[in-house]
Nucleic acid binder design. Structure first.
Length: 568
DNA sequence: CCGAGCTGCGCG
DNA sequence: AAAGCGCGCAGCTCGG
């Protein structure tokens, strides 16, 4: 156990009990809920313990709202899910039985966290009574000790840091210029209609589509109806999706594509979205750490994972502040190079565009080919250009290709695969197992065999991608966590500097404002922007070393300091 | 009237 | 040329 102390927080009747795990389970304090923020704050100042709690948002959102920031925690719910399934923790039997520790986070149940309701019924979700919390922590430590696996401990620390960061990201929000957003909507869609009905430019596009269809009442928002209307004027497409319409020559196509684009903007990120999700100059999505099976984050509400390019210009730093926008170039193939110990792929990636490096090696002729070949290798493409190009990589990068091919083979056979730090893929469904069993029987019908084979391949593509996507998610967690620590070292803004328009107390210094798989946005006082950029780059290098030691792979960033999040 | 399931589109 | 992975969300359709 590390030098820093670990302190469990749990509930006993109507008070919060803190138990130190360093002094043979001695009770450290018994604090009334109302006094908890002040007490936690004093502990942070003294020993900065690692807080062990059932569910990070349930504790940390209220603490943060009260102005108290913590440096680290152990999230029992997220850790439980990892240990329960991990191949690296084969002796975690005590975690496998279905219990309340498998429940969803309070955040997912009630995205507006309530501050420790004393009188109300116990919140649904994972257990919070101090005895149960301590027992779960003991089970987890036992599983870890039996596994003797440093990677898993690293993963749990990274996952827990992510849980803290998700709460802070929501509290801080992404600086959003609602007026600029409105101007953009008016320019593209027309003025916001006061009653029902569509904005003028959307209405106009719809009418031009109907004119070309020769049907003044044609329904444009129902795919089956639209498809029939298209067939009536001789546009014989199989679906109404953009990419199929694009290939058609007919007067209806241009206005229809325009209508779809405008209607999409209106329904996904129009005024209704703006009213719901942007307040006081901040977009506050709900981040859901490990919401994806691979360990990637999901989001719930606000569509944070779909921040459309079109809207990036309205992400705007406060006056006197700047945005540091950074994403990793070709994260997944770099991660694949490192985890497979493929020196040649790592070499192709070093100090430059990875795809150009692959071209230089002679495996393929162009950057475009390198890209679809590598994506195809990681996604399991079998047909088309991608499927044709993948085999060319097998000669040049045998270790990398062996790793993904092996992951696919295990998946096809119904087995489990794991990420670099030990997150393990879910088991196949009962339906899947049943289908394979039926197909293996002597009197199996051909249709059964065909289906079983197809499902096996489907699962193979999933496990093939799982190891890479999941390890990339681990790298991103390590990066995030390190960025957060580095940003906390900056001094808060002084009296003479511009203060941010809104936000929690920690937003008086550079802070994370957005995260999306391989991209972060830091909101920083302008004077610190250059130093923040260095910190973000240094953190990326540190994350690479933390996961992969001295294996020679680098993680270069596309980074810019700007007033908006626009992409060049 | 509500919810499940589907389509289409946007993001990595 | 969207083929091959992972998502969320709006809107429609259909069944209860």
């Amino acid at each position: 156990m590390p030098a820093a102390s670990w302190v469990v927080l749990g509930r006993a009747d109507s008070t919060v009990v803190a138990v130190s795990l360093d002094r043979s389970g001695a009770e450290l304090a018994r604090v009334h809920v109302a006094d908890l923020p002040a007490w936690v704050s004093s502990q942070e100042g003294a020993t900065a313990p690692r807080w062990v709690w059932n569910d990070t948002p349930a504790w940390y959102a209220p603490l943060l709202a009260a102005g108290v920031r913590v440096s680290r925690c152990h999230d029992l719910r997220l850790s439980h899910a990892i240990l329960r399934d991990s191949e690296l923790a084969p002796h975690a039997a005590s975690l496998r039985a279905a219990t309340a520790w498998d429940a969803a986070s309070a955040e997912e149940i009630a995205p507006k966290p309530t501050l420790f309701e004393l009188d109300g019924a116990a919140p649904t979700g994972v257990p919070h009574d101090v005895d149960e919390v301590i027992a779960e922590f003991a089970r987890q430590q036992q599983a870890l000790d039996a596994a003797d696996e440093g990677r898993l401990r690293l993963l749990l620390a990274a996952e827990s840091a992510g849980a803290i960061i998700a709460v802070e990201l929501r509290a801080a929000g992404l600086p959003w210029d609602a007026a600029a957003h409105d101007e953009l909507l008016v320019a593209l869609l027309g003025r916001r209609p006061s009653g029902g009905g569509l904005p003028a430019k959307v209405q106009d596009a719809a009418e031009r589509v109907r004119a070309a269809l020769g049907d003044t009442s044609a329904s444009l928002d129902s795919p089956p109806k639209l498809l029939r209307a298209l067939h009536r004027v001789g546009v014989l497409v199989e679906s109404t999706s953009q990419w199929e319409l694009q290939g058609q020559a007919h007067p209806v196509i241009a206005p229809l594509l325009e209508y779809k684009k405008l209607a999409r903007l209106l329904s996904a990120n129009g005024w209704a979205w703006l009213d719901t999700w942007v307040h006081e100059g901040r977009f506050r999505p709900v981040y859901v750490p490990a919401g994806v099976v691979t360990g990637r984050w999901a989001s719930s509400g606000g569509g944070a994972l779909q921040l459309p390019r079109q809207l990036r210009p309205v992400v705007r730093a406060d006056p006197g502040w700047r945005l540091v926008v950074a994403d990793v170039a070709q994260l997944e193939p770099r991660v694949l190079a490192a985890m497979s110990r493929d020196e040649r792929l790592a070499g192709a990636a070093r100090g430059r565009d990875l795809y150009e490096g692959v071209v230089s090696s002679g495996a393929v002729a162009t950057r475009a080919e390198a890209k679809i070949a590598l994506l195809g290798a990681m996604y399991g493409a079998t047909t088309g250009d991608s499927g044709r190009l993948v085999p060319r990589l097998r000669n040049g990068y045998p270790k990398a290709m062996r790793l993904v091919d092996e992951a696919a083979r295990v998946g096809e056979e119904g087995g489990h695969v794991s990420t670099w730090l030990g997150r393990t893929s879910p088991s196949p469904s009962e339906a899947w197992v049943g289908a394979q069993r039926r197909a293996a029987e002597p009197d199996a019908r051909e249709a059964d065999e065909t289906r079983a084979r197809r499902w096996a391949r489907d699962r193979g593509r999933f496990t093939r991608n799982f190891v890479v996507q999941g390890t990339a998610a681990e790298w991103a967690l390590a990066w995030l966590a390190d960025v957060r620590i580095r940003l906390a070292q900056f001094p808060p803004v002084g009296e003479e500097d511009a203060a941010p328009a809104s936000g929690p107390a920690f937003a008086t210094r550079p802070h994370l404002a957005f995260f999306l798989h391989d991209e972060i946005i830091v909101h920083t006082p302008a004077v610190h922007a250059e130093a923040v950029a260095d910190a973000v780059r240094d953190a990326a290098a540190a994350a690479g070393r933390l996961l992969f030691g001295d294996f020679p792979v680098d993680f270069p960033l596309d980074l810019r300091i700007a007033d908006t999040a626009d992409k060049p």
